[in-house]
Nucleic acid binder design. Structure first.
Lengths: 225, 225
DNA sequence: ACAAAAGTGTTAAGAATACACCCATGT
DNA sequence: ACATGGGTGTATTCTTAACACTTTTGT
């Protein structure tokens, strides 16, 4: 099977799935059904077997344990590979982590899902393994990513108001932005354009809807914030 | 050994070691002594066995095949994990890659080194596997890294002139910078301070030597370039 | 009429860019 | 004296940051 005398460590994948819930950034967690850390909350993750890419394993595991289909995510990115020998009490496991961004995700429950639920990043329960560290790392990466790319699109509906856009930035960055400066700056980047539709949703002036010019990830000409 | 019916892929590590040779950025390659790709140039890399962290494996392999001690590197960073199932013709291998930065590295040859040599990044030979892609990725990461951190320190001697510093930036970024603007900007970041020593090295005015205030990696207050 | 969010401009400070000459040394 | 790289300043443009009121709608 393997070359002479070589035995590899276990390979696992873990996913950090973010979405916006109202004005806060949330992350998908599952509740472990087995030891170790039985009953504790954790990132959806599992084994990566030979013949399967890490992304395939991530897709399979995310569906099975978290009830989320990878194709419903707007952006997926490999984050980091965690491999402290001691991180899994069962033995040496190397975990390749991915970050996924989506919107209005609703875990579809089935016989293998493990109580998937979105938690605000500011109110996380106690977490299994080193998953708290992984989420922190993912959040920092996301904060950086939205300042030099248009990655925010993956957290928003196709058509959105400037207020929604600003709220998304504020949710990820965890601080407030000045409305006039935000709009001026963002519009000057020429990433979005107005549709001529209006969003009438309350007892106030309707808001214009915008959409991104290009569907994919782009690097900004001037970084943001 | 493993949980029920689970067999992991092979785990390998590969290192992209950069240093400056005069005014160009160079990368360490070895010449493969076995199939596949026998005789071709490649990044120093090898198996990562159970019980060994990826960083430990990287250290061991870099010494064995490349003749370079990890402790001689000024900065080491995990880059990305490459795992296209087809990337290694022998079968499914997942490679965790690291980037290392050093200065005046001289491979120490021994019975296991495989003809290690530094090649300018602009003049690479044909490379085994997907190592050309990996080097390109590492180079881009390094370019980004020196614009928002003081990572350049790892490519320079402890004391250096502003011209050496500028040359290092130019070598990594592959484009020229304006001398006056470079100096004004870099000094305003307050990362370096003057020693009162001079570098007398030729038939011209001696240059002041500077050093970094802090020994470790720092994020810049304003990003560079 | 009131509540609620949408939308809008100006000024001042700071940062980036473009650009050319004198200085100190060795030969 | 000349060749070589070291060292320096200013003017212009662009970017950021601070800041408050009017508009449009539903109730």
């Amino acid at each position: 099977m393997y070359p002479d005398g070589y035995t590899p460590p276990i390979l696992t994948v873990d996913s950090v799935i973010f979405q916006l819930d109202g004005t806060v950034l949330s992350v998908l967690l599952i509740q472990r059904s087995k030891e170790p850390f039985k009953g504790a909350w954790a990132l959806p993750g599992g084994y990566n077997a030979i013949g399967e890419t890490t992304k395939e394993a991530m897709t399979r595991v995310l569906k099975a344990k978290g009830g989320i289909a990878t194709k419903d995510l707007g952006l997926i990115e490999q984050l980091y590979t965690f491999d402290t020998v001691a991180r899994d009490p069962r033995g040496h496991a190397v975990s390749v982590t991915y970050m996924g961004l989506g919107k209005n995700l609703e875990p579809k429950l089935n016989s293998t899902t493990q109580n998937p639920r979105f938690f605000p990043v500011t109110e996380l329960p106690d977490l299994a393994y080193d998953h708290g560290e992984i989420i922190k790392y993912a959040h920092e990466r996301l904060q950086a990513k939205i300042t030099y790319t248009n990655a925010i699109f993956a957290l928003l509906p196709k058509k959105f108001t400037l207020s929604q856009l600003q709220t998304a930035y504020e949710a990820v960055l965890c601080h407030e932005l000045d409305k006039r400066n935000f709009r001026k700056k963002f519009l000057s980047l020429e990433l979005i354009e107005t549709t001529n539709e209006l969003n009438k949703d309350g007892a106030h002036r309707p808001a214009r809807l915008y959409c991104f010019r290009n569907p994919g990830l782009e690097t900004l000409v001037r970084s943001f914030d």
